[in-house]
Write a protein that binds this DNA or RNA. Structure first.
Length: 194
DNA sequence: ACTCCGATGGTCT
DNA sequence: GACCATCGGAGTG
């Protein structure tokens, strides 16, 4: 069993996020998302699947048609959260990348739970540990993200992404993105090889 | 294992 | 009024 002790000193800084979405999407693989709840519970897990949504020439990106009320967080400086509701049911967690005005982000598609698993089971209404964060809607649900989290930055104790212990080179697969129809041919999805 | 499909509502045209 | 960065259950093999 892997034991993780969250360490805010290992948190990724702004320089990490203000780069292009493809680079951030690839490098987020293997990093650990940490979120502290109001109840004091700590949730944490290793990011294993991401997708980049670009600022330009990407019709699948919410930013493709310009800034709106929904996608406004995407146009802020990188390192903040963008959450939206899809199909009227599920929330999706994004991490904004690039600099102000760009309009790019990374969708967090899957996470391996490390801490707060009992809480995640409650949020997800399942005891199957393999289904807690297996998909963007599920991962957002397990980590209790909602649109209230929009614009929250990843530079404080309550919410951040950190390096994993003893980071090793990981084999990362690059494929086409999932569940979209526009710009569907672009290979902007990254995941750990199983 | 797989495919199919309904749920459900915010967002934009 | 159409679309949608999803999920899980039902049905099939």
């Amino acid at each position: 069993m892997i034991v993780l002790k969250p360490d805010f000193k290992k948190a990724l800084k702004k320089e990490f996020y203000i780069r292009d979405a493809e680079t951030v999407a690839r490098e987020l693989i293997g990093k650990v998302l940490v979120k502290k709840l109001d109840t004091g519970d700590i949730l944490a897990g290793m990011i294993t699947e991401t997708e980049a949504y670009l600022a330009n020439n990407d019709l699948a990106s919410h930013s493709a048609t310009g800034k709106s009320q929904r996608n406004a967080p995407m146009f802020e400086d990188g390192g903040i959260v963008y959450v939206y509701k899809i199909y009227g049911i599920h929330h999706c967690l994004n991490i904004v990348t690039g600099t102000e005005g760009k309009g790019s982000a990374v969708l967090i598609r899957a996470i391996v739970p490390l801490l707060g698993i009992e809480k995640m089971k409650i949020f997800r209404k399942t005891n199957d540990i393999n289904k807690l964060c297996n998909g963007p809607g599920n991962a957002a649900n397990a980590f209790a993200f909602s649109r209230e989290d929009n614009f929250r930055d990843l530079f404080h104790q309550g919410l951040f992404v950190q390096e994993y212990y003893n980071p090793k080179p990981k084999e990362i697969i690059k494929t086409k993105r999932i569940g979209i129809t526009k710009s569907a041919d672009l290979e902007l999805r990254y995941c750990l090889k199983i």
